[in-house]
């Protein structure tokens, strides 16, 4: 009867007691609201002095909200092994970090070295009548 046992296991994993799931949505919602509002207020009122600190704080708030929604709304990390969903999500995050981080690094380097400033460009284009 291992089949029946297996089935009940999979069915149970899909149909946890409703209360538990409802609770996870409530937690996720309230936490997201709190994080959104704090991000909003520290920006709106320019709380704290350092600019770098503000950017850092906003990034941390966004990332926490991302993880909270991933966990409480999208239920990542709650599957049985083999955890393909978790693996593929981690791979996605790695690719995104490489892509965004790499692009910014490369383009920053290029901008500093080969791009004229906007002022230089406007001046140049004004000198070229046909543009």
């Amino acid at each position: 009867m291992s089949n029946v046992a297996k089935m009940s296991k999979t069915l149970v994993s899909e149909h946890q007691p409703e209360q538990a799931k409802f609770k996870s949505y409530i937690i996720g919602f309230i936490a997201s609201l709190a994080l959104t509002m704090s991000a909003y207020f520290i920006t709106y009122y320019h709380v704290s002095g350092g600019r770098a600190l503000l950017f850092g704080a906003l990034s941390v708030l966004a990332l926490s909200q991302f993880l909270i929604q991933l966990f409480f709304f999208l239920h990542v990390g709650r599957e049985f092994p083999p955890r393909y969903k978790l693996m593929i999500t981690s791979f996605m995050i790695l690719v995104v970090l490489i892509l965004v981080g790499g692009s910014l690094w490369i383009m920053h380097s290029l901008n500093g070295r080969v791009m004229p400033s906007t002022n230089q460009m406007v001046k140049y284009m004004n000198s070229q009548d046909n543009l």
């Binding site: 690094w105 490369i106 380097s109 290029l110 500093g112 070295r113 080969v114």
Partner: peptide, 8 residues
């Protein structure tokens, strides 16, 4: 050859 720095 596009011109990024030597570290990159």
């Amino acid at each position: 050859t596009m011109g990024a720095g030597s570290n990159v």
